[in-house]
Amino acid sequence: MLCSVYVISGVFAGLSGVLLSSRVISGAPTLGEGYELASIAAVVIGGASLMGGRGTIWGTALGLLLIQTLNNGLDILIVPAYWQNVIMGVLIVTAVAIDVWAAKHRIA
């Protein structure tokens, strides 16, 4: 079972690499740099806990929609890429802080 999860993950990673390189007609090794921050932000903002045990696919999809809308809006406003990463980091920290606060109040 665990092996099949790794195989499926590898297939999707390869497929996404092919799609991305065909989209920009390039195979630069740094092409997907920075996408890991966006993916973590989408999952955390979507409601998944970094402590594990919670999260849904629909929440992740909504988090992805929010992150992509934010990225497109910041691109339209011509915000530098550095500040876009800072804003995304602040969103992650805020989502984690809210998750920790909610977990503490749920237990007590």
Rank of each mutant, 00 (worst) to 15 (best):
V11I: 06
G63Q: 01
N72E: 13
A13Q: 07
V18N: 00
L70P: 05
G34R: 04
S21C: 09
G73A: 14
D75E: 11
G73F: 09
W58T: 12
Y35S: 10
A38Q: 14
I76D: 11
V43W: 01
Y35N: 10
T56Q: 06
Q68E: 10
V18K: 00
E33L: 15
G55D: 01
I45R: 07
L74S: 10
L19A: 08
E33V: 15
L62Q: 13
I57R: 09
V11S: 02
L62W: 14
G63V: 00
I78G: 13
T30G: 11
P29A: 00
A81G: 13
T69S: 14
W83L: 13
E36P: 07
G53S: 00
G59S: 08
L50C: 07
L19P: 04
M51G: 11
W58K: 11
L37M: 10
I25V: 13
A48K: 07
A48F: 08
M51T: 10
A81M: 15
A28N: 08
M51D: 06
L70Q: 09
G34F: 02
N72F: 13
G55T: 01
L19D: 00
A41V: 04
S39Y: 04
V43R: 02
A41P: 01
T60G: 15
I67Q: 07
L37I: 09
R23F: 07
D75I: 09
W58R: 12
L77D: 11
S39I: 07
T60F: 14
G53P: 00
G53W: 03
D75F: 08
G34I: 02
T56D: 04
G46W: 06
L64Y: 11
L20Q: 02
L20F: 03
M51V: 08
I8N: 11
G10W: 01
T60C: 14
G34Q: 03
T60V: 15
Y35G: 05
G14L: 00
S39C: 08
L50N: 04
S49G: 08
T56M: 06
R23E: 04
D75L: 13
N71K: 13
E33R: 15
V44P: 03
G32Q: 08
L65H: 09
T60S: 15
I57W: 08
V18P: 00
A41T: 04
